[in-house]
Structures are given as structure tokens and as C-alpha cells.
Design a protein around this nucleic acid. Structure first.
Lengths: 249, 249
DNA sequence: CGCCATATTGAACACAATCAACGCGTGTGG
DNA sequence: CCACACGCGTTGATTGTGTTCAATATGGCG
């Protein structure tokens, strides 16, 4: 947990520039929110390296982070030692909502891929929200999206057999990238098989076998030497594969 | 979907009364929020009967509901026919957050036990939030709690064997009741075995067997004729049972 | 009363977990 | 530079938990 450097952007500073420069190219949700935040809220651009902890379970909560770049995984754990990877966060996603319930973080957020976040004190966000209701709406929409994404995973875990569960995971990861205009057909998994298994309620062996089978069936392709670099020749095939195995038929 | 009767409570109306009357007895979160809402936001107290739909997947979203009494189950479904019971909502819980992501509901909310909600237009809530920031904080806390509760279920589904998964479900249901000062040792399940199974990623037979085993081991008790009326003699036993079966040992 | 939905229980089966061996790439230290 | 160890992934064999199929019981409701 060692954020690096720091530049304060007060409301006034980047306002005009941002309005002119970003509005036109702001096709994407993430850009709009980042822009909104930098213009209206005192926030701190923070740089993170792989392995850093953005927040840790048990820590008192007071600031939210909006991911600008990089990749962060969120871990959920209980006292009795069970734990699960809750999700992956990319540009435009927030970190720290887990602290809203009771003012104390309930999860760890671990940086996988170096990048930046905008750190915003929750109270500052509230204050800014009073002046800029759109900020509140954007915040709520982001919270809603996070919940929907969690629900989607839960549904997969509860209703799909192992193969389809892995396929569904890949589909949704690919989808996340596509939403951000990143390549969605050549993707790299930033999690080990064990981590994917943990996330999906499977063992690492089962995940490995599922991947092999997906590759055998030409739904995905990957090289033995780089098992985390996948290519998805046809998204539709993934969809078919999942649907076909869901009801069994 | 046929809400009954309706009484508008504007901010001024119940303000004084509520302040004096409720503040002293407002030991519980739910009472505080309900109070806050009735005092500061134009909202509509709505009565629901079993089977009513508070909102339906696909419906345009514009209003949130705060549950005052009764019980509501939330259903999540996909186009390809898979569906899952996402959670149960009691007094103090909100309904409709699933619409925040994109202005359209993503789930069905079905009333199980008749009761009332406070219906609040989202825009009215935002407007009121600008005057009463505490309202926003309470809203966010509720959203956070909902997410945490979902995470807890997901963790159980991913890490616990069938028996413990059912035990954990019972524990958390009991906990929900306790938080609201309802009896937590004599509980009634409002879901069928099949629904519980669906929620936990199990079949109804497995749930039934798990229940039988829990009863055999004296962790819970129930009568054959009323299989949804459970008693939990000692909460600690439930905890032990779950922990013991989690790591296997 | 009889039907239907719900629940329990048994037996056979299947899928995923477990146990185990091996391959490969990477990084470390001699 | 090579040897080696370690982390990660794949694959096989076996076990076991949960599913599936099936029969039976019970209570609510028309």
C-alpha cells in the first residue's frame, strides 16, 4: 500500500479544459465520470503498482477510488478463513463501496496491473454531489452496475455446469474489455487457474480441464506456453456453448 | 402489481410528530431511515399483497421502494431461461437498486408476505438528498449493505459444501430477523426447498437432505408437518456446524 | 374427497473434487 | 552458463458429493 506521487485537482483547475477537450471524445461512460469527478470534486490522482493494496478489510473507510487505468482485484474473506475473489475492476469502476455499509472496509483491493485511480474522500463526494446532482446519479449508476455484475456471476455459479461457468466468465471478461474499447478477441487473463476457480466455485483442475475442452471445441484458442493469453475467434460460439450447456437439453 | 390505497406524506406533515415520537424509540436503522424518508421526501405509502410485483425486469426504472413491513423476494433472470432468487427483503431494505445501472429494472421483485413500502421517485430522492445529505448517506449505506449481503451468499455458494451452505443460509436469515428484533430462534422459511436450492446452487432434494441432517444433528428442529417452521435451539451450534464443515478438517 | 404442490427418502448415476504425476517456464544462485 | 527449485498448468485415476430418477407421504384447497 504505497501510492506514489500525487496531484490535487481542484474543481476550478481543469474545468474549462476538460469541458472543451473531453466532451467531444467522451463516448464512454468511464471518460465521462472521470471527467465529471476531476472537474467538480477535489480528488487525488494516485499511482499504483502491482501488489499494492488500495484498501484492506477492516480499515476504516473514508475514501472511494475511481479506477482510471490498470487492473484491481477485490477479495472477500471471512474470519473463519474462507475467501473468494469478488471481481475485477477496470477503468471507470469504483473501489471502496464495501465501506459504505458500516464505515469499515469489508474487502481487500489488490492491484494486479499498475495504473492510476482518482481518490475521493466520501464526504467530499457528498459535498460535491449537492452541487452537481449528475455526480450522484453517476455514482449510483456505478453502484448499480457493480451489483449487476456480481449478480451475473452468482447466477452463473448457481445455474451453470463447470465448463459453461468458465465460458461465461470468459465471455463477461471479454465483454468488460469491449465496453472500454479494448480488444475483446485477444484477451489475457490476469488470474491463475486457481483464482478463477475460487471466483467460480471450482477447483483449479476443473478450470484447466474446462479451458482445454473449450480449446478442443474451438471456442477459444491458446498456446500451451502462454495459457493466459486467449483468443476468442467468434463470440457467438461462446454464447452458443453456454446456452447449450445451461439447460442441458 | 396492484398497490392499494395511498397516502401522500409531504415533508412538513409528519415532521414534528416523527421527530418527537420516533427519535426516542428509533433504536434500529430501519426506523431511522423510514423516519428520515417520510419527513423529508415526498413519498407514497403503498400496500402490497402476496404475489404482487413491485417491479418487473425490463420495466423502466423511476422509483425506489423502502420496505416498511412484509417480505419481498427478488428474482434475477437471463434471456436464456436461467433464473435465481437473489435475496429477500425486509423492513428497512430497499427495492429497485437494480434499475440504477441503466434506467431499466433488471429483476423482478415479488411480494411474499403482505406489507407496505414507501415509494419514492428517484429524482425526488436526489432532490431531497441535496437538502438532507444524511439521506444520501443512509441510501448509500443501504446499497452497501445489500451488496455485502449478496457477497456473503456468493462466498457461501463458492466455498461451502451443501450442508453448510444451507446452514449458512439459515444463519443469515435468522440474523436478518434478529437485526429487526424479530424472533431469531423460531423462524419460518418463506421459500420452498426448491427456491432455497435455487438460491444456493443446489437441488431441492439436496436441501431437503441437508435440513434432515441438520435436524438429526440437533442443530435445528422442525416438525414433519410444517417443514418451514424451524427452531434453532442454539445459534452457536449453527456456527460450529458451518465452520467445522468449511475447511473439512 | 381427491387433486396438486411440497417434502422426504432411496438408489443409481454423473460430474467435479481429490490425489498424483509430469511438463514447462522463470528466476535464482552456484 | 547451467543446475535447480518453484510456481503454474495439464492430464490421468479414483473417490465422493450432489444430481437425477423414482416412489411415497403429507397438507392445503377446490
Amino acid at each position: 500500500m504505497r501510492p506514489e506521487s500525487v496531484a490535487v485537482h481542484s474543481a476550478a483547475q481543469s474545468a474549462c479544459v476538460a469541458t472543451v477537450a473531453n466532451r467531444s471524445t467522451a463516448r464512454h461512460r468511464s471518460a465521462v465520470v472521470i471527467d465529471l469527478l476531476e472537474r467538480h470534486v477535489p480528488c487525488v490522482r494516485t499511482t499504483w503498482h502491482g501488489g499494492d493494496l488500495v484498501h484492506r478489510s477492516g480499515m476504516p473507510f473514508d475514501t472511494l477510488h475511481l479506477v482510471v487505468s490498470g487492473l484491481v482485484k477485490v477479495l472477500y474473506a471471512t474470519e473463519d478463513g474462507r475467501e473468494r475473489i469478488g471481481g475485477l475492476r477496470l477503468r471507470g469502476d469504483w473501489l471502496g463501496f464495501d465501506g459504505l455499509a458500516d464505515g469499515r472496509h469489508a474487502r481487500d483491493a489488490v492491484v494486479i496491473d499498475a495504473g492510476q485511480t482518482l481518490a475521493v474522500r466520501y464526504e467530499a463526494l457528498i459535498a460535491a454531489g449537492l452541487r452537481v446532482p449528475d455526480l450522484l446519479r453517476a455514482l449510483h449508476a456505478a453502484m448499480g452496475r457493480e451489483a449487476e455484475s456480481d449478480q451475473a456471476t452468482a447466477l452463473a455459479v448457481c445455474t451453470l455446469p463447470a465448463d459453461a461457468r468458465v465460458a461465461d466468465f470468459l465471455r463477461r471478461w471479454s465483454e468488460s474489455l469491449a465496453e472500454r474499447d479494448l480488444r475483446a478477441d485477444e484477451i489475457t487473463l490476469h488470474l491463475t487457474r486457481a483464482e478463477i476457480g475460487n471466483h467460480l466455485g471450482l477447483t483449479l483442475e476443473t478450470v484447466s480441464r474446462a479451458m482445454s475442452r473449450l480449446a478442443r471445441d474451438r471456442v477459444i484458442r491458446f498456446d500451451r506456453r502462454h495459457p493466459r493469453e486467449l483468443s476468442i475467434p467468434a463470440r457467438a460460439e461462446l454464447d452458443r456453448y453456454i446456452e447449450q450447456r445451461s439447460a442441458c437439453a
